[in-house]
Design a protein around this nucleic acid. Structure first.
Length: 206
DNA sequence: TAGGCCATCTGGTCCT
DNA sequence: AGGACCAGATGGCCTA
């Protein structure tokens, strides 16, 4: 725990200048996580030769570990970006945050599965008109012009609002799993709700 | 200015 | 032993 690295904390980018393939998106932060003030060699500790060697070995190990960790996080962010691309998004919507992406993806998947389930139920009934909740409808959901809330509270919602009786109806979804925000469970949750206004609808619900 | 989000560093733990 | 994964800490940037 000794401040072994206290004097090495110079960012590892010095050693691995963007070893990552696409650090381009990488923040310039990497270049200088800390204001590179000319460290005036403060409190240099004398070390024996052996200690110095151990120190260098540790330092190299740490630098390599940092680099791996950086790449790992970049991979994670790439996966998150890929997920964002798959999710419906409004053109003018700013980039979803990480947590928003995960929660929205969760709701989106749930909405899709609910839609399929309801469509199957409807299809099972003879004489019923085909339900417009298929993927095409979901595609509409992502269209910028669609008024999410109004659509979800009227129109075809009447035929699907019964989803509240679903065994998989995610009350946890409405309150966004893991979200400490409460008091949002009582607004009826429908598959469509998961797709619309994930940001402007109800804070903490997406 | 406070709060949210993010990237990075770091040390610990687990796994191969 | 070394790598992967994780969570805490830290500091920068941005926005209300």
């Amino acid at each position: 725990m000794d401040s072994v690295y206290s004097d090495i904390d110079s960012n590892s980018c010095d050693f691995f200048p963007h070893t990552d393939d696409e650090d381009s998106r990488g923040s310039p932060r990497c270049a200088s996580p800390e204001p590179e003030e000319p460290q005036p060699q403060q409190k240099k500790r004398r070390r024996g030769r052996g200690q110095a060697v151990v120190h260098v070995v540790k330092k190299n190990r740490r630098v390599k570990a940092n680099d791996r960790e950086r790449n790992r996080m970049h991979n994670l962010n790439d996966a998150l970006d890929t997920l964002r691309e798959v999710l419906p998004a409004f053109p003018d919507e700013t980039k979803l945050t990480k947590i928003e992406t995960l929660r929205f993806a969760h709701n989106y998947i749930w909405a899709l599965s609910e839609t399929i389930r309801i469509a199957d139920l409807q299809a099972g009934k003879p004489g019923d008109a085909p339900l417009l909740l298929g993927s095409a409808r979901l595609g509409d959901a992502a269209s910028p012009g669609s008024d999410a809330c109004s659509w979800s509270s009227s129109g075809s919602s009447s035929s699907s609002s019964s989803s509240s009786s679903s065994s998989s109806s995610p009350s946890y979804c409405a309150s966004s799993p893991g979200s400490p925000v409460g008091g949002t469970e009582d607004f009826g949750y429908r598959p469509q709700d998961a797709l619309f206004g994930f940001r402007s609808f109800v804070p903490g619900v997406y």
